[in-house]
Design a protein around this nucleic acid. Structure first.
Length: 618
DNA sequence: ACATTCTAGGGGTCATTTTG
DNA sequence: CAAAATGACCCCTAGAATGT
């Protein structure tokens, strides 16, 4: 159905498809009509031819570029393009339509696009007005689904310009994330195409070749693309330009990338530790040498200084002693002379003696000064020794620092390793919770653990709509590193049917395990749109405990039409009871009881084959 | 009074990969 | 190369509950 957004289209939203032209990369900028202001309503006749020639030229250029780079790949691309063009007679797939949208915005923002959007939306209105029977696809199909130019465009982009394709895929993906696009982008399809292209074995998208008429779904998608382009063509274009320039590298880190980054970090740390170890060894050697040198030096120096000091002191002492002795002797002699001589004589003698005394004192002072000088010299030497000691201390401190750093780095590396190991073990401990295609003939398979989780929530009466988001939210919270595919609402409902069958089987097993059956009760019910009787069994378990079980009896009882007499109903019930007990019924009677499910299936198969016959297919 | 959401299903198309 | 397996996604019916 048309959304109100189409009716509510205004100029401020819609006319902007072409008026925002981004800067294209220099390699292709000149070959596309994107540069400059594109006029939506003017010179519509001249542009297509020009663009076609330009596209051809660009194609030739890129072909030449490819062939110069690698011949086989260019051949493969050319072959792919040929295959694509050869297959262009049939309907486009959804993938193509989605790609078309972005590529149209990116490459042809001119009047053709506007015309296409107008046509699609007008025809949609007509379709709604006239109804599905009365509406006919426009005769001019190119207007509705422009195959010529656009298809070539798509083919060329898909086969020769991978970066454009990737950018378009990114834009679509972003649109899905932002809620601009109502459906989910088949990103897997696009990535598969890209992978095929890179491997050189691209066969083009599958087509609905057997269909004679276009499916309404495709038309619906076309309308959505047109709406999207009219609503947010500008944004798409801007985003495409930015992504295209960044070459679509804004992808989330995968586990492998994280692991490789971790390994690189580890290597870096190891290298650091190695260099530090070398440094440490060097520092230790240097310190050893310094230590030895300074030790011997200090020893030598201090020994020398001590020796000198001792000598000086001894010298000084000896000198002092000699002087004192001399002075004493002189004094004694002068005293003896003093007694017999005159005062004047004694006066002159006294003066002489005083002079001598002063001389001696001066000598003594000089000796002590020399001594002090010698002391100072030794002190200097000591100072030097102390300095050497201090140097040694510094070197030792540096060495300690280096060693501590080394230890820290080693601990860090060990911690990283431990954390990595822990993460791995945690991941190993988690059950697989993401759908994979490796099992069961390539079909997607919901992992068993996820099934069990869904069953559990269903059994606890969780609303089916909430089950998938619940599981995903809990896994994101508890184990954010773990891959978990969120079960869709649809599959939850299907699992609900599955679980009811599982429950019936479990009940049947318990009935089979009963030691004895006390009573049966029956009630009418409907299952798979087929009337049947549910069976209420009361019995005794092997342990002697009472047990009440409810079986659907779906596969045990035939349809009970309203006209069935009470006698026949009773008969049927007793037969069913007997078949459940496994006694009292002959094989022939059991064979007559065709399971309703089987009848229903057969009816479906018959109806299907009839319809196939009508269509003329075997 | 009307819109939306949920339940309980039936039924179909599509993409993808393995298998016969 | 066709068949098979399988979930994703889609549409439809019909009634009940809930919200505006």
């Amino acid at each position: 159905a048309m959304s109100p957004a189409v009716g509510g289209y205004t100029a401020e939203h819609g006319d902007g498809v072409g008026d925002h032209a981004p800067q294209r990369p220099a390699t292709r900028g000149s070959s596309t009509p994107m540069s400059g202001e594109a006029d939506l309503h003017g010179h519509s006749s001249s542009v297509p031819a020009k663009r076609a020639s330009e596209a051809e030229a660009a194609s030739k250029r890129s072909k030449a570029k490819c062939s110069s780079a690698s011949g086989t790949q260019a051949d493969a691309y050319a072959q792919c393009g040929a295959e694509w063009r050869a297959a262009s007679g049939s309907m486009a797939t959804d993938t193509e339509v989605l790609m078309l949208g972005v590529l149209l915005v990116a490459r042809a923002p001119g009047p053709e696009l506007q015309e296409w959007i107008d046509t699609v939306l007008r025809e949609e209105q007509e379709y709604l007005r006239l109804g599905a029977e009365a509406w006919v696809m426009p005769a001019k199909q190119a207007a509705w689904r422009p195959k010529g130019l656009v298809h070539m465009l798509v083919a060329r982009c898909l086969t020769q310009e991978l970066d454009v394709l990737e950018a378009a895929a990114c834009v679509m993906h972003a649109g899905v994330r932002q809620g601009q696009v109502a459906w989910q982008l088949p990103a897997s399809v696009l990535s598969a195409h890209i992978a095929q292209l890179k491997a050189g074995r691209f066969t083009g998208p599958k087509r609905l070749g057997s269909k004679r008429e276009g499916s309404p779904r495709l038309a619906c998608e076309l309308v959505r693309v047109a709406q999207l382009l009219r609503r947010s063509g500008k944004e798409l274009l801007r985003e495409f330009a930015s992504i295209y320039e960044a070459r679509g590298q804004a992808q989330a880190l995968t586990m492998a990338e994280v692991a490789s980054a971790h390994a690189a970090e580890k290597l870096k740390l190891e290298a650091e530790v190695a260099t530090l170890t070398v440094k440490e060894k060097r520092a230790a050697g240097f310190a050893r040498i310094c230590k030895a040198r300074s030790k011997s030096r200090v020893k030598r120096l201090s020994a020398k200084a001590k020796q000198k000091l001792k000598e000086n002191r001894q010298k000084g002492k000896a000198m002092l002693k000699a002087m004192r002795k001399e002075a004493k002797a002189k004094a004694a002699s002068s005293r003896s002379e003093l007694g017999g001589q005159s005062v004047s004589k004694s006066d002159s003698k006294l003066v002489k003696m005083r002079k001598q005394r002063d001389l001696a004192r001066a000598r003594a002072r000089g000796a002590s000064k020399r001594l002090a000088k010698a002391d100072a010299c030794s002190m200097k030497r000591l100072e030097r020794a102390r300095k050497a000691e201090a140097e040694l201390k510094e070197v030792r401190a540096e060495l300690d620092d280096l060693q501590a750093k080394c230890r820290r780095e080693q601990q860090k590396a060990a911690g990283e390793q431990q954390r990595a190991a822990e993460a791995l073990s945690r991941q190993d401990a988690m059950p697989a919770l993401h759908s994979s295609r490796t099992q069961s003939r390539g079909g997607l398979e919901l992992p068993f653990a996820l099934r069990v989780l869904v069953f559990g929530q269903l059994a606890r009466l969780t609303p089916p709509r909430a089950i998938g988001p619940n599981i995903a939210a809990v896994v994101r919270c508890i184990a954010p590193w773990h891959r978990c595919s969120e079960p869709t609402y649809d599959i939850t409902l299907k699992l609900r049917s599955e679980m009811s069958i599982v429950g019936e089987m479990l009940a049947a097993r318990r009935v089979a395990e009963l030691k004895r059956i006390i009573s049966f009760g029956f009630d009418e019910t409907t299952k798979y749109q087929v009337g049947s009787l549910s069976t209420n069994v009361q019995g005794e378990t092997v342990e002697g405990k009472p047990s009440t079980l409810c079986c659907a009896a779906r596969s045990s009882l035939p349809v009970a039409p309203p006209s069935m007499s009470l006698r026949r109903l009773k008969q049927s019930c007793s037969r069913a009871a007997a078949s459940i007990c496994g006694a009292g019924s002959t094989p022939s009677t059991r064979c007559k009881l065709a399971p309703p499910r089987l009848q229903y299936e057969q009816a479906r198969v018959r109806a299907r084959s009839r319809s196939r016959g009508l269509l003329g297919r075997s």
